[in-house]
Each structure stands twice: as C-alpha cells, then as structure tokens.
Amino acid sequence: MDKETVATISYLSRLAFDKDNEDKITKDLENIIKFVDQLESIDTSNIDPLTSPLEQTAKTRVDEVTAKNRKEKFLQNAPDANEDYFLVPRVVE
C-alpha cells in the first residue's frame, strides 16, 4: 500500500484527503490490509464463494406497472434541479 495506490482508490471512490490526512490514511489502510492478509494462510481451493448466507433463489416480479409519478417530490429533494431535470455542472463529452 503506497501513496499512489491510495490516490488511485481514492479517485475510484471519489474521495479526497488533505496532505495531513494522507499519511494517516495510508498507514491505516496498510495496517488493515496487513490484518486481513491473515486470510492467505488458509487453503480455499475448490471452495465456492458464499455471496449470500441465504442460499435460496430469487423471487421475481410480474411485468406490471406499479409506480406512480413522483417527479415533483424527487426533484424537490435534489440539491439542484429545475422543473424537469436534476442538474449538475455541465459535463463535457
């Protein structure tokens, strides 16, 4: 875990740290990763990962419209919106 890795994952996570915090974060992450590295010690070949403790299958939905229009409420809750759209600073493609 070095500063460059921390910079990459910070960017992927859209988080930023000021200089003072950078060292501390790097150190913390390094320790945590070292801690979880214990997992290496165990042989897991041929073991299926368990992604949910509920080993059952999904319930699904029939294709019927149930939602109602809540545009006004949703846009009201937004940090920036006009009467039709959520707004963000102009994105240049």
Binding site: M1, T5, V6, T8, I9, S10, L12, S13, L15, F17, I25, D28, L29, I32, I33, V36
Partner: peptide, 12 residues
Amino acid sequence: KRRILIGSYVLS
C-alpha cells in the same frame, strides 16, 4: 471513508 477505500481496494 476508510471503509470505502478498503472496499474499493479489495474489489479492484
């Protein structure tokens, strides 16, 4: 933030 970073790291 710490946990988000760890999460991004272990999935990267």
